[in-house]
Write a protein that binds this DNA or RNA. Structure first.
Lengths: 248, 248
DNA sequence: CGCAGTTTTGATTCATCTCAATTTGTGTGG
DNA sequence: CCACACAAATTGAGATGAATCAAAACTGCG
C-alpha cells in the first residue's frame, strides 16, 4: 500500500473546475491544498479501499480510472459505478464510518487523499466549499437514481446506449474526444454495471456496429452516430411493433 | 399548497433518534428547532415537490409515507424509493438547486420543512449536526447501491423478499410490528421500484403465500417465516436445480 | 511466441413480460 | 345501507428478451 506524499497543488491542477476546489478563491484553494497534500498511486487492479475498511478520507481522482463494486455473501457482485479524473470516491464510507463497497483502479491511477475530519472542519469555515461538497454528494444520489432508471426500465441495448453516451459526455468534459475512446473495463464489468451478462453486452456492441452507430474494436470505441444512439434511448413504441398490413 | 406554520418541537418529537437531531444536546436541538419551525401537511396523492422545482429546503417526515420517482421523456417512470417517518426527503435537489425527482405522499402525511441555507449555516456551527447530516446523505448513497444490487443481480422473488424484509426492519425501528404491516403503495409502484411488472409482483406474493412464507390480503402483509424469506435471498444454487435421478 | 484471459458468435432454455379475462376492493351518491 | 363505477389485484396463456451453455477467435502480456 504505497502512499506517496507529494504536494497536491490543487492550484496547479487542471481538474479544478471538475473537482472539489470549484468556485473557491485562490486563498481558499491554498487552504484546501494543505489539507489534501498527500497523494497515492495505484497500479491497475489494486484496491483503493475495500468493504469494511475504516473510513478516514475521501479521494479525488487525479489521473486514472476506477470502478466501485458491492459484493453479496453468495458471491454475486454489482458494479455500482465507474469513476474518472476529477471525481470523488469514498463518500459511501461516511455513513457507517467504514466503507461499504470496494474501489479498484482499472488502470494505473493517482488520487489525492482528503482526510474527512479536516474537510469537515474546513468546510465549516469556507461556505463555498461546504456548499460544493454537499452538491457533490447530492450529484452522486442523482446519478444513482439514473442508474436505477436504467436498471429498472430499460432494455439491454438502451442500457448500453445510455452507458456509451454517458462516458462520451464525461470524456468531453475532460477535454478528450467525445467520439472516440478507450474502455478501461471488461465486457463483464460493463455487464455487471448494466445488469446484463457479458455475452449480452457483446451482442449489443455487435448490433450497434452492424447498424452503423458505433465502431468497435475490442476496447476501442468510436461513436459514429450519436443521434442514432440517443434515438435508441427514446424508443417511444415497443421495439419494432408489427404493423398490420391491412384491416384484418 | 397548504403550509401550516406549526411549532416543530424536535425536542418533543419521538423520532429524534431516527431524524436529524440524533446525537445533539438539548440546547443544540433547540437551535435546530427554530430552524425547522414550519410544517406542511399533505393529503394522500399530493406532491411534496416535483422535478424541476427550485430547491430550497429538505424535509423530515413527521408522519406518513412517501414515494419518490423519476420520469423519462417517453413516459416510463422509476420509483426510486419509499420513505417513512424520520427519514429525510429532498437531498436530490442540492446538486442542481432544483429537484430531480417527484415526491408524493402515499397517505396523509406531515413533514417538517428545513430551509437548506439555514441548515448549512447551523451545521457549520454545530459539529455533531454537520457530521450527522453528512451521514444521512451518505446513507442514501449506500441505500441506492443496495437497490442497484437488487435491480442488477436478483430475480423477481429475491427482489420482493428483500423489499419485504427491508420494510419490516424499518417498521421495527419505528416501534411497529415487524411481522404485520400495511403496504401503502400499489403493486404497480412496488413493481416500478423493483424493476418488475405489477403482474410479476402479484404472482410472487401469491407464491410466497402458497409457500407459507407470508400471508397476503391485498395490502395487508403478515410475515410468517422471516427466516424463510431470508433464505430466498441467499439462494446459493440457481433456483431449484433439476437434479438428475441417476447417472445419465 | 505461446498461453490465459477476453471477446465474439451460435443454439437453446427460461424468467419475465404482454395481453386478456376475472375477481376483489374502495369510495360515492342515491 | 346498498348499488354502482372505478381502481387494484389476481390468474392464465402465450410471446419474447436475455440468460445459459458451448465453442471458436482474438489479443496482448510475459
Amino acid at each position: 500500500m504505497p502512499i506517496h506524499a507529494l504536494k497536491a497543488a490543487c492550484s496547479q491542477c487542471n481538474l479544478q473546475e471538475l473537482c472539489l476546489p470549484l468556485g473557491l478563491t485562490e486563498g481558499e484553494i491554498q487552504r484546501l491544498e494543505t489539507l489534501a497534500s498527500t497523494r497515492r498511486k495505484l497500479k491497475r487492479g489494486h484496491h483503493l479501499y475495500r468493504t469494511g475498511a475504516p473510513f478516514e478520507a475521501i479521494y479525488a481522482i487525479k489521473t486514472g480510472f476506477f470502478k466501485t463494486d458491492v459484493l453479496m455473501e453468495d458471491g454475486r457482485d454489482q458494479v455500482t459505478g465507474f469513476q474518472m479524473a476529477g471525481e470523488i470516491l469514498g463518500m459511501d464510507g461516511i455513513s457507517l464510518e467504514a466503507h461499504s463497497c470496494n474501489a479498484v483502479a482499472l488502470e494505473d491511477s493517482e488520487v489525492c487523499i482528503i482526510p474527512f475530519a479536516q474537510l469537515e472542519q474546513l468546510s465549516s469555515e469556507i461556505r463555498t466549499l461546504q456548499r460544493h461538497f454537499h452538491k457533490v454528494m447530492s450529484r452522486e444520489i442523482v446519478r444513482d437514481h439514473g442508474v436505477m432508471m436504467l436498471l429498472g426500465t430499460m432494455r439491454a441495448e438502451e442500457r448500453l446506449a445510455a452507458f456509451l453516451l454517458n462516458l462520451s459526455q464525461r470524456f468531453t468534459a475532460r477535454g478528450y474526444s467525445s467520439a472516440e475512446f478507450h474502455l478501461r473495463m471488461t465486457r463483464e464489468e460493463i455487464g455487471s454495471y448494466l445488469g446484463l451478462k457479458l455475452e449480452t453486452v457483446s451482442r449489443a456492441f455487435s448490433h450497434f456496429q452492424d447498424s452503423g452507430l458505433i465502431g468497435v474494436q475490442q476496447k476501442h470505441i468510436r461513436i459514429l452516430d450519436s443521434a442514432g444512439l440517443k434515438a435508441v434511448l427514446s424508443r417511444t413504441s415497443p421495439p419494432v411493433a408489427a404493423i398490420p398490413i391491412a384491416a384484418a
